[in-house]
Structure formats: C-alpha cells, structure tokens
C-alpha cells in the first residue's frame, strides 16, 4: 500500500450517538440503568397509588411489616411503605440537582482556572480551602444557619462537591492545552473562547459525566445523613433520611423503620455507582485502563 491511498472505512456520522450505544453495551451501565429507571418510575408514579404518607393513625402505631401496610407503621401510626415511596422522589431530586449544579459550577471555574493563568492560583487556593472543610460539618452549619429547606439542603451539599469537579476539569484542560492540535489552532489564529469551546470542552464531557454520577450517589447519601442527624430537609417532608431519623428512638423495638428506607437508599445509590463505574470504563479509557 502506498502512503497516499485512502482507507475504505466509511465516514462516521455522529460520534456521540455511537458513544451512548457503546456505553449501553457495558453490563454495569445497562443493569444499573434498568434499576434506576424502575426506581424513578416508582418515585414518579408510586405516590398516586399509596396512602397519604402523613396521615396519622394513633391506634396502629409501631406495627410490624405485613400486619399494617407492607413495611409496617411508625410511632405516629403513619404507613412506612407510603412514606418510603414518597421519599424516593426527594432522594432522586436531591441527587440529580446536586450533580447538575455542582458539575455546571465546577466546569465553569475549572475552565477558567485551567486556561487563564492569572485566575488559576486564586481559584485553586479557594478550592483547597473549601476542600479542607469537612463536607458534612459544612453542610450542617450552612443548613442550621440559613434554615432547613429543600433548596438550602441542595446548596449545602453542592458547595463541598465543587472543588473536586474544578480539579478534574482543570487537569483535563491543562493536559489538552499542551496537545499539538490546540497549538495548531492557536497558530491558526483561533481565539481563546473558541479554542475552549471547540477543542477543550469536548474532552471534559466524558470524565464529567462519570463524575456527575458519583456526585449524584454521594449527594443522596449526604442528604440521608443530614436528615438522620436532624439537620436536613424539614421533618414534615418524608425524605428517607427523615424517616430513618424518626425510626432511631424505637430502633430496638422496630428496626424495620430504619431498614426499609435504608435498603432502598443503598440500592438506589448502588445502582448509580454501578452505572458510574460502567461509564468510566467505557467513556474514560484513560482511567478505565487502570481501574478495570
């Protein structure tokens, strides 16, 4: 073959579609995704089919599973099953919104830190500072100061997650900006914002998707911990953390009040993490090579 003959391979139409298809071929992504879809369907549709999660029933207090409702009742006689079904919504909303907000903010700051040398030191020192404050303590303090609402809980979980996204994006940017193709674009007179959008940003997408799934999982855990400690979403909302927090007092008598939401939460987070691992293996070959 002489050097000038062309390969017969067909042109690719869209890399992104094939990327998704590629990712779905991974067992973790597929099965984790199936479980997540089921949980999400449950969270959306379920509340219409169960009893009112806040309805009190003092006669039927602390009943074991099966005798009153699928998961029993709590100390106020509320149906634990319907509370758990309603709690799923809260968990998913917190997980998703934290992931989206943290990634968006982290991406913005990371791009700036990675490409504008003047801002780099400033942003990274700020992130170092933020990272050294223990996340849960920071969240507890923020929530107790600004009052517990769903929004403040989300913000309080987002803030400590930002530094890791910034570091990830910055490291990608620093690697990519050394690539000859970026230098070729500079030589071709392409302006900095265009270089960032056209040549740098696409390289951050795969690692960010992976990171977003991990953040989603960890945010759901943090939410439940905050609820459990009594420092999270207002107690009248039946989040999984709150249900378990209320179950503490009678744990030795009625362990199911903690176990059912606990198992649901663990299953959801596990599904998210399994999807994350699968995505990492397929989308981010650099890390995947080491982690497989």
């Amino acid at each position: 073959m002489t050097d000038a003959t062309l390969p017969a391979a067909p042109a690719e139409t869209s890399k992104d579609i094939s990327l998704i298809r590629h990712a779905l071929r991974n067992r973790g992504v597929f099965w984790g995704g199936v479980v997540l879809l089921l949980i999400a369907a449950f969270a959306i549709v379920g509340p219409f089919f169960v009893a009112d999660p806040t309805a009190l029933n003092p006669i039927n207090r602390l009943k074991p599973p099966g005798s009153a409702g699928l998961f029993g009742t709590d100390m106020l006689g509320r149906d634990v099953y319907s509370r758990v079904v309603n709690g799923a919504q809260i968990s998913l909303v917190v997980g998703l919104s934290v992931a989206v907000i943290a990634v968006a903010l982290g991406l913005f700051l990371g791009l700036i830190a990675g490409y504008i040398r003047l801002m780099d030191a400033l942003i990274m020192r700020l992130m170092d500072g933020l990272m050294s404050i223990p996340a849960i303590l920071l969240a507890i303090a923020l929530i107790s100061l600004s009052g517990a609402t769903l929004a403040t809980v989300v913000v309080a979980i987002v803030i400590p997650e930002i530094p890791r996204v910034v570091r990830l994006v910055r490291s990608v940017v620093l690697t990519v900006r050394e690539e000859p193709y970026v230098e070729a674009a500079i030589s071709a007179g392409t302006k900095v914002p265009t270089i960032l959008m056209r040549h740098v940003l696409p390289n951050t997408i795969a690692p960010l998707i992976v990171q977003a799934t991990y953040i989603c999982g960890s945010a759901m855990l943090t939410e439940s911990i905050l609820g459990f400690l009594g420092a999270g979403i207002p107690p009248e909302i039946p989040s999984w953390g709150n249900i378990m927090s209320e179950g503490r007092t009678f744990f030795q008598l009625t362990p199911w009040i903690i176990f059912f939401p606990g198992v649901c939460l663990a299953l959801t987070v596990l599904a998210v993490n399994v999807v994350g691992d699968g995505l990492r293996d397929t989308l981010d070959p650099r890390i995947a090579k080491a982690m497989r």
Partner: peptide, 18 residues
C-alpha cells in the same frame, strides 16, 4: 468496594448493632 460506597454509614451501624 462499590457496595461500601453505597450504604449510608448509619444504616450499616444499625445493621451491625442488630
């Protein structure tokens, strides 16, 4: 390892106590 990341620490504590 992936399960260890997925179970909230207090749920695990109660399972062990139980």
């Amino acid at each position: 390892s992936v399960s260890g990341f997925s179970v909230p620490v207090f749920v695990l504590g109660y399972i062990l106590i139980y």
